[in-house]
Amino acid sequence: MTFSVKRFMAIFQKDLKDLYRNMYVSSTALMPIVFAVIYSRVGEVPLAMYLFVITLSLALVGTFLQCAIIAEEKEKNTLRGLMLSPATLTEILAGKSAVTIVITVIVTAVSMLIMGFSFAGSGWLIAGIVLSLIFFIALGTWMGLITRSVMEASVYILPVMFIFGMANMFIGLVDQFSFLQVLEYTPGIQLEEIAKLGDAGAGFDELWKPFAIIGAWVAAMLVLASVTFKKRMMD
């Protein structure tokens, strides 16, 4: 199996340029920044709100963007051309993931800047975000492989948004709706846990648990995505 950096970069540049002109998808990806602006006006922002915006950008940018740009290639019959070229599906998906990672990092960083959140001394949180990003991108890739159009992707993203993207907000309602307890295991809530423990100066003896939970999501999603990927390669 060869991996060509040149072909990977070609896909990366094309997708970045294309995304720049894609109002529908790029405006969706800017949502977290809108939330950040709103919250920055509120004044005293609790930690949970920062984590809400971080998780929202992971789900909305990491997952939706990845899913939409893969689905659109199928919808517009452009994936066929790429697959008939020397580019491999691995190079194609890597190029797209790189675009998604860059945009997610920028949107998250800008949102936090607007809200006045500093990542200084938050090494654990950053590590947790990076790990979660792998999960959200693998989720987006898997969804991109199973959806056929951007419209379909926009529908499929809704449950992902509610479960993974907004868990940090809905968890506040857990006293009224006890079934919401399951949300405690989402990467977003685990990130909040990491932030809290990190702030309290906890060591890895306490921090391993949220990392392990996020790691389990990553592993499960990677397996699911690569099984679907292999099936795709066949036909």
């Binding site: 540049q13 094309k14 340029k17 294309d18 894609n22 517009k76 066929r80």
Partner: peptide
């Protein structure tokens, strides 16, 4: 049913290839 990238120019479409 081959497709092109509608938002990009002819040049950009070909440059990718």
């Amino acid at each position: 049913n081959s497709g092109l990238y509608a938002r990009l120019t002819i040049y950009d479409n070909l440059k990718l290839y």
